[in-house]
Amino acid sequence: MAASIPEERVERLHDLAREAAREGADDRARSYVRRARRVAERHRLGLPTRFKRFTCDDCDAYLVPGRNARVRTQDGAVVVTCDCGTHARYPYD
């Protein structure tokens, strides 16, 4: 038994959110992202790095670069801008 139920659940919600976002069901994707955050919060889990980088901190949208997110590489950091205007920055490496 590798992953606990909440860990599996966050992982599944991540996959579901990605699929929903690719199909254009943004609100459904958003509800999956919110639920994944809530499950992680209730179980005191950290979120996977991929999840953090592909969701908007502010509006919980699942980010699909080129469709609802802009990705620019700058000096020392990648900057992802959501359609809602929120920037997220993370370093190279």
Binding site: I5, E8, R9, R12, L13, D15, L16, Y32, R35
Partner: peptide, 14 residues
């Protein structure tokens, strides 16, 4: 996911 854990697991997508 396992039948025994299903009631506690994510149902969306099933």
């Amino acid at each position: 996911m396992h039948p025994t854990t299903l009631p506690r697991h994510e149902l969306a997508g099933l």
